[in-house]
Design a binder for these strands. Structure first.
Lengths: 110, 110
DNA sequence: TCCATAATTCCAGATATATCGAAATATATG
DNA sequence: CATATATTTCGATATATCTGGAATTATGGA
């Protein structure tokens, strides 16, 4: 992932409503949730949420597919992984904070 | 790391000059760089950079210590690690994308 | 076709962020 | 103390982001 791209992804998550929406979608993988359902759960007006979901989609963190009258949103786990990889490589690239990375791994893989 | 805190860290990195400054500091661990040196390397006015460094410090991504007339900035690698841990746990918490995490680990630990 | 539901787009106002010149503060040296 | 260097703070402007009401588009059912 390029730096410019990473910044877009970082910015898209650096907003409370979008962070909540993304986490909600992560929790509902792989079925996804409709835009309306997300709006109801987060208590956010549909049009406001729509704008936020658009930002997440532009950043590649979500995908949207229409199903009948609803639009189902899903989280792109691979995109989140790509971001953490970018951050970790940015950290460790050519330097060596393997110990830190090992901590992440042990915490994650348990 | 709490969500609110993570958002602050994400926002602090979601800006080109700050991302550049942070990466520069990561590359210069553990010696650090003076504010002026960073400003020169990034070709940014000292006062503008100062504002950015302040944002990074508020987010806990950098520390500053005065040495004579200069102020030396250092990257907080542990803070970056805390962020990736937050993101990874947000991803894997109770769901299971161990495979993805393993990829990060293998790429990082090689 | 007419109506109801779901979502988005349009638009405007409010808030936040970024930028940088000028002035202020801190430190060292002659 | 006077001066030079390093950095930050102040203040003003420009730009971007967030928010939500109103209108628009898309789909399905009577």
């Amino acid at each position: 992932m390029e730096t410019e791209e990473a910044i877009t992804v970082l910015a898209s998550l650096a907003q409370p409503t979008r962070m909540q929406a993304f986490r909600l979608l992560i929790q509902h993988e792989p079925e996804g949730l409709t835009a309306g359902e997300i709006a109801r759960r987060l208590v956010v007006p549909p049009n406001t949420l729509s704008a936020h979901l658009n930002v997440l989609s532009q950043a590649g963190l979500t995908t949207a597919t229409r199903k009948s009258r609803s639009v189902i949103y899903r989280a792109s786990v691979s995109r989140l992984t790509a971001l953490t990889t970018f951050l970790t490589q940015d950290c460790c690239g050519g330097r060596g904070c393997e110990a830190q990375a090992a901590i992440i791994c042990s915490e994650t893989l348990t």
